[in-house]
């Protein structure tokens, strides 16, 4: 199960870096955070899971979206 989750996380991470649309990357990253939070609950780390969900899927996403709104959404690579 953890292997499957890790595999998903890895592919989401690669997608975030390969996508030419930065907003898609941000969504992928926040999904990645949620998946890791799920994994942390499975690994008996509820505290880390809450933090990861609040920070990774919450604040980071807000800041990333803010940065992208202020710059350009398209990336050349």
């Amino acid at each position: 199960m953890t292997i499957l989750l890790l595999f998903l996380i890895l592919s989401l991470g690669s997608f975030a870096l390969l996508s030419k649309d930065l907003l898609h990357s941000v969504i992928a990253l926040s999904a990645l955070s949620m998946l890791s939070a799920l994994m942390f609950t499975m690994l008996k780390a509820p505290d880390v899971a809450i933090t990861e969900a609040a920070v990774g899927a919450g604040i980071s996403t807000i800041i990333f979206v803010w940065a992208i709104r202020h710059t350009r959404r398209r990336s050349k690579d």
Partner: peptide, 11 residues
């Protein structure tokens, strides 16, 4: 892209 670099740091 510098924002992608920050993504990388996150990962």
């Amino acid at each position: 892209n510098i924002i992608k670099k920050v993504f990388g740091l996150n990962l």
